[in-house]
């Protein structure tokens, strides 16, 4: 007898799906005026902004380039640049 099961998902296996290819603009972290407010980490819909001690960056494998981090950065230390492919 062949035992069968339903389709289960492995936790966090979506990381295999690199959504960075969706991007038309990318955030650039300038590392100049950062105040460590951490907002860019909190407001990223994909949860891929990381860092500490005024040095933050984004995981471009997944960043969809929505621009929320740049829009919300209170000191304009993140800018959006057109993606060149």
């Amino acid at each position: 007898m062949q035992t069968t099961k339903t389709l289960y998902g492995e936790p966090g296996s979506s990381v295999q799906n690199k959504t960075g290819s969706w991007r038309t603009e990318r955030p650039v972290f300038l590392h100049k005026t950062c105040t460590d407010c951490f907002l860019c980490v909190l407001v990223c819909p994909d949860g891929v902004v990381f860092g500490s001690n005024k040095i933050y960056d984004v995981d471009l494998d997944y960043c969809k380039g929505c621009g929320i981090c740049a829009e919300e950065c209170p000191v304009k230390d993140i800018v959006m640049e057109r993606e060149v492919k």
């Binding site: 936790p11 966090g12 296996s13 979506s14 990381v15 295999q16 799906n17 690199k18 959504t19 969706w22 991007r23 819909p45 994909d46 949860g47 891929v48 902004v49 990381f50 995981d59 494998d61 997944y62 969809k64 380039g65 929505c66 621009g67 929320i68």
Partner: peptide, 15 residues
């Protein structure tokens, strides 16, 4: 970023 309970790579729209 791996501590997030929702991992990246999902297909939610940008933003």
């Amino acid at each position: 970023t791996e501590k997030n309970s929702v991992a990246p790579g999902h297909n939610a729209c940008s933003g």
